[in-house]
Design a protein around this nucleic acid. Structure first.
Lengths: 380, 380
DNA sequence: AGCCAGTTCTACAACGTTGCAATAACCTTT
DNA sequence: AAAGGTTATTGCAACGTTGTAGAACTGGCT
């Protein structure tokens, strides 16, 4: 029972222990482990046995120290309690696993300090690069950064004017998506359309947050269709949880009982909105339409099933990992920006003819879910 | 621009670089970084400046190699697309962050192979210990394991007869919780109570899965109240997603239109069930009661708000980390089993008098959610 | 001056791994 | 039987860090 010199704890088996047992050099064992071709078959066999016998497994730390690469990447998102981020995290984990990488997960829990820590490279180096979805961090903090301290890919909507050197950015064109969502409502005849989701918090308004971008798309669509935007129809919320949707709808409906549609900043908000409308006795979609954003797993099971913008999370994850990998492998060009596709998913919550047809397949993103004998339409 | 000898990539600043700039020894810099007390104030200052100037950050890998500890722990769960697991993961991340630890997240995505990989210690050592929530792994695989290859804490319900040496187990008494849930229904006068959630898949039935334990509690409660359990009222499902709840309810209601309550294996299933009942025009809770398990963030926003078993996820995470930390610090006693509390949360879906009172506060688990000016009751 | 007790700083070694270069063993071919 | 080539194996050094032990100072006391 060998002890670690510094800690006094049991030391896990190392190459040395295998080598001793197999009667070969440490390097030979290393060669076997790494499938180096020039090893005699008989030796390889002996070593393999010894490995099993002592239960050897390579120490990632030593490999990283020696090779300079850890095959680990850090993913920093606000909080897994948002279904959008837990879905997204799952995509990253799967995609990384496919590439032989391991994901270290950091949650900034929406705290500005936590985000700054991420941006400044944490307090220690762990992993080869970072994928970071900021929410709150101020633009000026970005601006001050001349360059990143390790390969970094930003995701999300918090676009700074100028990315730090050494970083890339993968986004979804939020304004365009919100434009499409709003256009869909306009084309189905809605005219009094509210927007729920501008963030006005104790922290002050976020100029580049997804809320503002989506609102811009909403406004643009109205203008394009000759509908005068009304600032009173843009409802601020404290946060983007279901709960905020509920109270937001409360405010909105009290002030504007004549609304015939609400564009929501995300699905969680929309689900809260639906809950309030149900309470008011407003029928969705007959009296009022509701559309969300994110296509969370809840959306098809909301009552009624929720129309929404469905970002291609898989493409987002894959693209971000591609860019990050290039950075890790030494690419040192200027910051790149990649746009990722999205689609408009129309379900019952915006479909006036609902209940008559609409065989919508809920798009399940769960990896193990069967391909769905599925749920056609759900009554409200 | 120093290159890494083995990879040819840029080498991040190390203690050496700081030492050179500050004109002191490497060890002195190390002492400053680690707040060793016997350092002259002036020296400390010089070194601090040099650290900032070169942008030094400690390399976790080298620390781990030297000290034998990485301050990282691995969390392996089936999939973050289940709200239960994303909530739980968030709890672990927060709690670990509070203890200065970082979480490496593995997703087994329900695959048996992936789970076996976790159990066998992955292919390389990363982090100081593992928290593992198995779903599918066979009991015999556990039984064969004499001892774990690194400190391990199991969570979840898949209790093997005998834990491997070096591991602990934190669980929630599933049978008791399901017993309580069922008793609640019985006491409010329900008699034709079905159970949805036994897993019967291509993989075969899972003897120790949470589904079976919960079913056992359900059966026990019926017996205790003199209600004859009816095997026909136990409905198997392929998986535990909302979708499966929908189709499961379909089967169940077709065969037993007279049901007056359904106990669901988890909240996602229950939400699917609610969707189907709405479609059938059954009123919940007047005609039929539905109760879930997990208290996911959706539950209070379901229509109607869902009664459920609320496991104390925070206690679960904290306990698991406590036990794991003890193992990491050298505790080598026999396997321990810890039970974690749960509570029965009664919302509208099981409350016959619903709509009249019931000022239920949705228990939001989101870290940033305000303490709720809240949603009283929601109409169905 | 000489000595001790503290404080401040440093040299060394080792953690487990792998790239490099060198050696040793083995076959061919002359 | 020696030269040349290929295959198999190995020793060395270094990645960045920190525990240990000890050296070099400082100041206060006899």
């Amino acid at each position: 029972m060998p002890l670690h010199p510094a800690s006094g704890r049991k030391r896990p088996p190392a190459l040395r222990d295998v080598a001793e047992l197999a009667g070969v050099s440490i390097k030979t064992v290393s060669n076997v482990v790494n499938d180096y071709p020039h090893v005699k078959d008989s030796t390889r066999e002996t070593v393999r046995e010894a490995i099993l016998q002592v239960g050897y497994r390579p120490q990632a730390a030593a490999q990283q120290l020696r090779t300079g690469a850890s095959k680990m990447i850090t993913l920093a998102v606000p909080a897994l309690t948002f279904s959008y981020f837990s879905d997204l995290a799952q995509q990253f984990i799967d995609e990384a696993q496919r590439r032989g990488q391991t994901v270290v997960l950091h949650s900034t829990s929406g705290g500005r300090e936590a985000e700054r820590t991420v941006l400044e490279g944490f307090n220690r180096v762990v992993g080869d690069g970072v994928i970071f979805n900021p929410l709150l961090i101020e633009e000026e903090v970005f601006a001050r950064m001349e360059q990143t301290t390790q390969p970094t890919v930003f995701i999300g909507e918090h676009l700074p004017e100028k990315l730090p050197h050494g970083s890339d950015y993968v986004r979804i064109d939020n304004a365009a998506a919100a434009f499409d969502a709003t256009t869909h409502l306009l084309e189905s005849g809605r005219r009094r359309i509210a927007f729920l989701g501008a963030i006005a918090t104790k922290h002050g308004l976020q100029p580049h947050s997804s809320g503002s971008l989506r609102r811009d798309g909403y406004v643009a669509a109205l203008e394009e269709h000759g509908v005068e935007p009304d600032a009173g129809l843009v409802q601020a919320v404290d946060d983007w949880h279901r709960h905020d949707g509920f109270t937001g709808a409360q405010d909105l409906m009290a002030r504007h009982p004549d609304l015939d549609a609400i564009v929501c900043g995300n699905d969680d908000l929309a689900i809260g909105v639906l809950a309030h409308l149900r309470r008011l006795g407003r029928r969705v979609p007959q009296d009022i339409a509701v559309i969300g954003y994110d296509d969370t797993p809840d959306a098809p099971f909301a009552s009624p099933p929720l129309s929404t913008i469905s970002p291609d999370k898989h493409a987002l994850a894959a693209t971000a990992l591609d860019l990050l990998t290039e950075r890790i492998q030494g690419f040192d060009g200027p910051p790149r920006i990649a746009d990722t596709p999205y689609s408009l998913v129309i379900r019952e919550s915006t479909d006036r003819a609902a209940g008559d047809h609409a065989p919508t397949t809920p798009s399940s993103t769960a990896p193990t879910a069967p391909t769905a004998p599925c749920l056609e339409e759900l009554p409200r």
